[in-house]
């Protein structure tokens, strides 16, 4: 079993399953948002802000946001461990994207409830 202190779920198999679950959520969110925008070409502010004001959409959006954090962590972790051989470079990059992903999540919460 692959075990690493910097992997998201502490082992390869749980990272693998997290990647799949979050992928399904993000696929659903992507299809929904693209579908909504295609279906409403003359979108108004009232419609748009009304959509994001409803509880179901906020739950869906926050879920998608957290899934982005987990999904991107696993993905970028995999890519960085494959290509960055130097431990210092790799850990620095992982710390960097960890902070950026955290900022995305906080920013997203602020957008939804700000």
């Amino acid at each position: 079993m692959v075990a690493s202190v910097t992997s998201f779920g502490r082992n390869g198999l749980s990272d693998w399953i997290i990647q799949r679950f979050t992928a399904v959520v993000l696929a659903a969110y992507t299809v929904f948002i693209l579908g909504y925008l295609i279906y409403n070409p003359e979108l108004t502010y009232e419609q748009w802000s009304g959509l994001f004001a409803c509880t179901a959409m906020r739950i869906f959006s926050l879920l998608a946001l957290l899934c982005i954090g987990a999904h991107a962590w696993v993905g970028l972790w995999t890519v960085s461990t494959d290509y960055m051989r130097s431990t210092a470079v790799r850990l620095s990059f992982q710390a960097f994207f960890g902070v950026v992903l955290f900022a995305y999540v906080v920013w997203g919460i602020q957008i939804l409830w700000g």
Binding site: L101, Q110, I111
Partner: peptide, 24 residues
């Protein structure tokens, strides 16, 4: 993999657009 890294960077534009469009 490349598009995944692109999305990590590109997300900042989508988030900015969402923030602006929902602000007022």
């Amino acid at each position: 993999r490349i598009t995944g890294v692109m999305l990590f960077v590109g997300l900042v534009f989508l988030m900015y657009g969402l923030d602006l469009s929902l602000s007022s």
